[in-house]
Design a protein around this nucleic acid. Structure first.
Lengths: 138, 138
DNA sequence: CATACAATCTACAGTAACTGTAGAAGCAAG
DNA sequence: CTTGCTTCTACAGTTACTGTAGATTGTATG
């Protein structure tokens, strides 16, 4: 239908906000199929490729790891798949994100506590260093 | 004073919750000095090493990158350094963490929106896939 | 003492998801 | 024709470890 846009790798990159090297990387990872080549060996892409890459980029921007993106692509290629599989992947990823947020907040809380103890003297009685080192506490 | 504990690398690992390979890695990264060796070439650590490693582990658990830990160690080695340098590193790290949290929360918000649109049909009319792919939206 | 098993040694590959580089070749414009 | 940009392949570097192979050493038991 519409694969006649004939984009160079640079143009595809422009169109999707993707670096050229990253596109080649996705190809190597089999997220993108190997494109048609020009007589001199340059990659030529069409609208289908652009849409697929856009899908990949959007998934990645939501933090889905490459493996999950690969699964999502496979699922989306088969229109009869149950959407439940898609939902499962997305919820697993959400749980991951929640865990990361929780970890970072815990880290942050502790770090703020450490920073708050700084009295801006010399390191000799620096509370930050002391807090980091069990040495000076015990 | 107290460097006569003579710990094997395994014992040092036990004492600080660090894997043996990680300890060797820290040595390679010059976070830990090269320890004394036994006649047969095995590493022997003392209390000073244990404290230094504990400092590293605590810093790492707060998310300080290795380079920052290296700086903190250097600073803490010179008792006359101004604590301000330490404070600066810690605050920079805090800003980093805050940015990461903000990014994750934005991601999460968007992901929840995507997941919420799932009606559990087939992929053919899966809102998650649609949301990921610009194709079906336009 | 012999033997088995655990711990240690060095050196290197693998992880995640790219990014950057080198060196060669193609392509368009002046 | 030359300049300069894009593209090509192939490979190294990033972060902070983790795991593995193959060899050696130390320890405990029979």
């Amino acid at each position: 239908m519409d694969r006649h846009s004939n984009l160079s790798i640079g143009q595809l990159g422009q169109a999707t906000g993707t670096k050229v090297t990253t596109i080649r990387f996705y190809e190597e990872q089999s997220l993108l199929r190997e494109p048609v080549r020009s007589p001199s060996g340059r990659r030529q892409y069409g609208e289908t490729d652009r849409l697929r890459l856009a899908f990949i980029r959007r998934s990645r921007s939501l933090g889905f790891p490459i493996d999950a993106v690969r699964e999502l692509l496979t699922l989306s290629d088969d229109a009869s798949t149950s959407c439940t599989a898609v939902d499962t992947i997305a919820r697993a990823h959400l749980a991951d994100i929640d865990q990361k947020i929780a970890d970072l907040i815990a880290m942050r809380t502790e770090l703020v506590r450490v920073i708050g103890s700084c009295r801006h003297g010399t390191v000799a009685d620096c509370k930050i260093i002391e807090t980091l080192a069990p040495r000076a506490i015990s």
